[in-house]
């Protein structure tokens, strides 16, 4: 009964931070039917939350492009590491 009441509450009055949590989880797992519909119904009524999914996708893109950026070991660091490796003989 408690679970049923919570399902109804989620569907009818999901809070913004709950919708954020579910939108975030949706990137990592399949949401349940109730979770998906709760978010959909919330987004109909809540304009600010509508852009959250797009913004998180953008964040992931930014993070990936950061991880693709090449950097170069400084000559000093490279030499230091080379010496350390040679000392392993």
């Amino acid at each position: 009964m408690k679970k049923f009441a919570n399902t109804i509450r989620m569907l009818l009055s999901l809070k913004c931070d709950e919708s954020h949590e579910l939108i975030s989880s949706g990137f990592d797992k399949d949401l349940s039917g109730v979770e998906r519909w709760s978010v959909r119904l919330h987004l109909i009524a809540c304009k600010p939350c509508r852009s959250v999914g797009r913004k998180l996708r953008h964040l992931h893109k930014i993070a990936l492009s950061r991880s693709d950026q090449p950097a170069t070991l400084s000559a000093e660091a490279r030499e230091r590491i080379r010496q350390k490796i040679i000392n392993e003989k």
């Binding site: 950061r66 991880s67 950097a71 040679i86 392993e88």
Partner: peptide, 25 residues
């Protein structure tokens, strides 16, 4: 011992920048 060290130095040349980029990001 020598050949492992030679490999290590070779790996540093081949993959050093890549690994540094990985850690830095």
């Amino acid at each position: 011992g020598e050949s492992i060290v030679d490999d290590g130095v070779h790996w540093l040349d081949e993959h050093g920048d890549y690994l540094f980029s990985y850690a830095l990001a």
